[in-house]
């Protein structure tokens, strides 16, 4: 069993309205040092696989098929266990 953590973020070139709104909220609270806020999603999965390589292959397929929309999103992941 492998514990996998996936971070999904909007691609750099895609405007992030949520991040922008959070940045403005921070500014209105006096946190003027914030240059940029980008919001994303965090997923934790437990994956059955015989080894790390298989877990990684399965995860990539899941990301490409469902978890990530490649038109607007990028992803990174960490595999533990």
């Amino acid at each position: 069993m492998f514990n996998v953590k996936v971070e999904v973020t909007l691609k750099k070139q895609v405007l992030d309205p949520q991040g922008l709104t959070v940045k403005h909220a921070l500014e209105s609270l006096g946190f003027n040092e914030v240059d940029e806020v980008r919001m994303g999603k965090f997923l934790e999965l437990k994956i059955e696989a015989k080894d790390r390589k298989e877990a990684e292959e399965k995860l990539r397929r899941m990301c490409e098929k469902l978890l990530v929309n490649p038109v607007i999103e990028d992803y990174t992941y960490q595999i533990e266990g």
């Binding site: 405007l15 992030d16 309205p17 949520q18 929309n69 038109v71 607007i72």
Partner: peptide, 11 residues
């Protein structure tokens, strides 16, 4: 169809 939807710019 091509493309994707983001949150409205007004959120």
């Amino acid at each position: 169809l091509p493309g994707a939807m983001r949150h409205n710019d007004s959120v």
